[in-house]
């Protein structure tokens, strides 16, 4: 504050800043506390948690909740499936985005108008749940890993974002490469790709996070095949069962005595943390890029 040479702080400034800092600190607490509480519960002994009174730290520290979910073959398998769909989904989405974006950014491309129109219009309507469900069924994608991947390969929004980025690159790059006889794929992957890394990194992260967070498609299309379950869907199932549990009896003594030191609540807490950790890990990278990505989208979108 002393460094602020431009003008003296008035009383209003001081009062305003104080109140502002208090409000924003409350915002931080309200945002973070629920996460921290779940973290504390996830590391606390399950039976002890039922007594209540866990806030910021575990009271009876244990890693048993995590051990028991990681030893559950279904949850372990679901975590692998979630990771696979995030990796495969984002790689294919980026490849599709850069190829289509490159083609419609080429001013001399004969199908430029029609192709970009087809992609743009698809953003303005959706077919709705039931027709989409019937389509997936008719394509025999039910209980098939491909249902996680195929519909997400092409994303019109991402294509538009990459396209506006490529539009900003000098056209002479492509022209000189063409004169040298380079093929289109070569131009895309050895010229456009290295120059578009920032925007491609952004969409990779967004698609990966979206894939990791998906659960509804699992429930709709793959609920019959436990091998294709995802972590988020497993968490959703636990969520539903704990919700029913609190409705039936909040303090069911029988359950307290019979449980083998895990309760739905502690399992839910540990799974919630497992579902959040990867997001936390990519979050610094996300944050580095997303403001930029958002601005690109909003200017041209």
């Amino acid at each position: 504050m002393a460094k602020n040479k431009r003008r003296r702080l008035t009383t209003e400034d001081i009062v305003f800043d104080t109140i502002n800092y208090i409000i924003l600190t409350i915002v931080i607490i309200v945002t973070l506390y629920p996460f921290i509480h779940v973290l504390a519960v996830s590391f606390n002994d399950a039976i002890d948690t039922v007594r209540g009174g866990i806030y910021l730290f575990p009271r009876k520290f244990t890693t048993f909740n995590y051990v028991s979910i990681l030893n559950d073959p279904e949850i372990y398998n679901a975590t692998i499936i979630s990771a696979l769909r995030a990796i495969i989904g984002s790689v294919l989405n980026v490849i599709a985005s850069i190829i289509v974006a490159y083609a419609i950014s080429r001013r001399d491309f004969v199908l430029r108008g029609i192709v970009s129109k087809i992609f743009t219009y698809s953003m303005y309507f959706t077919s709705g749940l039931i027709p989409y469900y019937l389509l997936i069924r008719d394509l025999h994608l039910m209980n098939n890993f491909l249902v996680y991947i195929l519909p997400g390969i092409v994303s019109a929004w991402n294509i538009m974002v990459v396209r506006s980025y490529i539009d900003g690159l000098p056209a002479s790059l492509v022209e000189s490469a063409k004169l040298d006889g380079a093929s289109e794929l070569r131009i895309i992957f050895s010229i456009i790709f290295p120059l578009s890394v920032p925007v491609l990194a952004t969409i990779t992260l967004f698609v990966a996070v979206g894939q990791w967070n998906s659960w509804f498609d699992t429930m709709l299309f793959c609920s019959m095949n436990p091998n294709l379950s995802t972590l988020q869907y497993e968490l959703q199932k636990v969520l539903q069962s704990t919700q029913q549990f609190t409705q039936q009896a909040s303090f069911d003594m029988g359950l307290r005595n019979n449980s083998n030191s895990v309760t739905p609540e502690s399992i839910r807490a540990a799974m919630t943390i497992v579902a959040v950790v990867p997001i936390m890990m990519v979050y610094p990278f996300l944050q580095k890029y997303f403001v930029k990505g958002l601005t690109i989208g909003s200017v041209k979108g």
Binding site: V27, P34, N213, L235, L239, A269, T272, A275
Partner: peptide
């Protein structure tokens, strides 16, 4: 901190809200 909850799924958020 304030951007963070946007990136967690609604399943996680619902779990937290219910808690």
């Amino acid at each position: 901190i304030s951007y963070l909850p946007h990136f967690v799924s609604w399943v996680v958020a619902a779990s937290i809200v219910l808690d």
